[in-house]
Amino acid sequence: MHPVRKQRLYIVLFIVIGASIAAGLIFYALRENMNLFYSPSDIATGKAPLDARIRAGGMVREGSVQRLGDDLEVRFVVTDYAHDVTVHYVGILPDLFSEGQGVVVTGQLVTPERFDATEVLAKHDEEYMPPEVSDALEKAGRVPQN
């Protein structure tokens, strides 16, 4: 390779590697702040602030969804299967909201166990299958993972 071109190649590599290191340092500094939400374990270990607007996320525990009265108030448990947090919400839930499904809720922690949500978003997983396949899986006793 021509020496001048070789030198230019080194400059190109320097730019790419330098930018990567800079980005790496930035994301190392941000770490936890890059996460969209706190997990129930984060909340249980006191990483999430009380009485501040935050997001929490996890799975809706099976059998935990309770309707209180005949209005839109609903209570459910969000879990990461290590710790739980109970979410209170008044409003319309997204179509994909169901037990065993992932959710991200926005609101504030009143106590480390109670979360008052102002918004509930459904978190979709990466599973896609036709209804017949999911029925067959259920019949076979293997609940589709979601």
Partner: peptide
């Protein structure tokens, strides 16, 4: 790397895709 609302990749290079063949 982080907790996101967006789901992880469905089509994977190294393992079976988490989508039914008739869809992918």
């Amino acid at each position: 790397w982080w907790f996101t609302l967006h789901q992880p990749a469905t089509l994977k290079i190294t393992q079976a895709s988490s989508m039914h063949a008739s869809m992918w």
